[in-house]
């Protein structure tokens, strides 16, 4: 049993998100899994650091009773990287919105992923700029009508999953704000993954983009329009659990089990630990109406982490080095004495 409960991770600050905001459930999930994270890692809670950028979701560190850093717009990933590289014993979580991580902070985001720094990035994707009151974001759908696109956007959105996998990310998972259990499930998986873990939370913005993900998050549609992927399990979904994902040549296909000669054996089995990034990319990019949106851990592969490699290099250089102090450094090499 952990020495902590979720209450140990709640700060005394009043949470100031709008009533009904999708961010609440992600915060709750984080507070609920951290006792288990501390237990699994054998660490005290003071080793937990939560870093964020700017935006509604970036207020999250204030609501956590941990070390926290609410930084500047777009730079959370760089700051989290600095924290982790400086002290790899810390357990670093990052909260960023779609604007913070993918617009102004896009560069840091892809480079942290490329380096595989051992940080856990919670990407709150509500497809809108909420804090500045309703402008389109880099994940707003083509044609989205917002305050800065009164006639609809004429630009394509990023799919965070494609971006992560395109940068050869080692971990990508997705969840829906309304699914607290799944939020916790992917957070625990992210915590266990060594390297940059990106969790995309599809969150609702009740004020400026209400129903941001309604087509998949509403009770009546969720079972048919989403699929929760789990390692070793067949890719079956639907209210009647009779639909599945098959590989058809180079493409994925949605099928109904028992129709057109399709049996359960034809359905793909999910393997997030395989290095088949092509298949994982196809799964990450599935969307309606043809496909269900993939939730759960889509990719989770082992790879050396940047912070560990840095430490190992420091260790191996130190082991071989003849210079051990600044005094020895200053008097090394070409010196001469004036008598």
């Amino acid at each position: 049993m952990s020495q902590y409960t979720f209450k140990d991770f709640k700060s005394d600050q009043e949470v100031r998100w709008c009533p009904g905001c999708g961010d609440y459930s992600v915060l709750a999930a984080l507070q609920r899994i951290l006792p288990k994270v501390c237990e699994e890692k054998g660490i005290e809670k003071e080793k937990v650091v939560v870093v964020s950028g700017i935006g509604c979701s970036s207020r999250l560190p204030y609501y956590m009773n941990t070390y926290g850093f609410h930084s500047i717009h777009g730079r959370a990933t760089a700051i989290a990287t600095g924290v982790k590289v400086a002290n790899p014993e810390l357990c670093v979580w990052q909260a960023s919105g779609d604007g913070d991580a993918l617009a102004i902070g896009g560069n840091h985001f892809i480079h942290a992923i490329r380096r595989n720094v051992d940080i856990n990035i919670m990407l709150f994707n509500n497809r809108i700029y909420g804090m500045t009151k309703g402008q389109y974001s880099p994940t707003s759908k083509f044609g989205a009508i917002t305050k800065t696109s009164p006639y609809g956007t004429v630009e394509n959105p990023f799919e965070p999953g494609s971006l992560v996998l395109g940068a050869k990310g080692t971990f990508f998972a997705r969840s829906l704000d309304v699914d607290l259990a799944l939020n916790e499930e992917i957070m625990l998986a992210a915590s266990r993954h060594e390297g940059t873990s990106v969790m995309e939370f599809l969150t609702n913005c009740v004020i400026f983009n209400n129903g941001a993900h309604a087509e998949i998050s509403s009770r009546e549609h969720r079972a048919d329009h989403t699929i929760v992927l789990r390692a070793g399990e067949k890719m079956i979904f639907g209210a009647e659990r009779n639909r599945g994902i098959m590989l058809d040549g180079w493409k994925l296909r949605t099928v109904t089990i028992g129709e057109d000669g399709v049996g359960e054996d034809d359905i793909l089995v999910h393997d997030p630990h395989s290095d088949n990034i092509g298949l994982q990319m196809m799964l990450a990019e599935m969307k309606g109406p043809e496909f269900p949106v993939a939730l759960g851990v889509i990719r989770d592969v082992a790879s050396p982490t940047y912070d560990k490699c840095v430490c190992e290099q420091c260790g191996s250089v130190t082991a071989k080095a003849s210079i051990r102090s600044v005094d020895e450094l200053l008097t090394s090499g070409s010196v001469w004495e004036v008598k």
């Binding site: 070390y67 850093f69 930084s71 730079r75 760089a78 700051i79 989290a80 600095g82 924290v83 400086a86």
Partner: peptide, 12 residues
């Protein structure tokens, strides 16, 4: 990122 990683390291 140069200064931000440094700020993170300073915090740490």
């Amino acid at each position: 990122a140069g200064i931000c990683t440094a700020i993170g390291a300073s915090f740490a």
